[in-house]
């Protein structure tokens, strides 16, 4: 485990397709990479008791969450042969259909990135203190819970 200070994984609002595309572009100089794998979490317009979710408002215990992202990252590098990995999570309002989580892993070979990505995404859902308020079209709300 390194002593590097945790990076800030949070971005205000939705993660744009430009941002995602640009991240892919930036890896073209890293020519030892043979395989990327990407997870994009998208806000779903769930229907709950006849009401439709129009957005999720994310908050987090940011210091602890960034430390957890950092720990997950370090654990993933130990477990898998990764060249690099990036995690970005939204804070604030993300509308249905927009992206709220972007995880990007890269490795010389493909098999590793499938396993690594699942491991990382499951750990994020389970261990990182992020909270989501599901806002309905009539402005009422309920609190999202990961299962």
């Amino acid at each position: 485990m390194s002593d590097k200070k945790p990076k800030n994984a949070f971005r205000q609002g939705a993660i744009s397709s430009d941002f995602i595309g640009n991240s892919i572009y930036k890896h073209q100089t890293k020519t030892s990479i043979g395989a990327h794998n990407i997870f994009l979490g998208q806000v779903r317009a769930d229907e709950i008791n006849g009401k439709i979710v129009s957005a999720i408002e994310y908050t987090a215990y940011e210091d602890m969450a960034n430390q957890k992202f950092h720990d997950i990252r370090e654990a993933a590098f130990e477990k898998f042969e990764l060249t690099c990995m990036h995690i970005y999570h939204s804070l604030g309002t993300v509308k249905a259909g927009e992206i709220c989580l972007f995880v990007f892993v890269s490795s010389p070979r493909r098999k590793v990135v499938f396993e690594a990505l699942e491991y990382i995404v499951e750990a994020i859902k389970d261990e990182v203190p992020v909270f989501g308020k599901e806002i309905f079209e009539d402005s009422s709300h309920q609190w999202k819970v990961n299962n």
């Binding site: 979490g41 999720i56 994310y58 987090a60 215990y61 210091d63 602890m64 969450a65 430390q67 999570h89 709220c100 989580l101 995404v121 994020i124 859902k125 389970d126 261990e127 990182v128 203190p129 992020v130 909270f131 989501g132 609190w143 999202k144 819970v145 990961n146």
Partner: peptide, 27 residues
């Protein structure tokens, strides 16, 4: 959480920051 680590009810208070964390909903 105490000092950003999850703790149990039996954990001793150290005086460091405590946080009450409802169910996680990241992603």
């Amino acid at each position: 959480a105490q000092n950003q680590e999850l703790v149990s009810l039996e954990t001793e208070l150290t005086g460091l920051e405590i946080a009450l964390l409802p169910p996680f909903a990241g992603g």
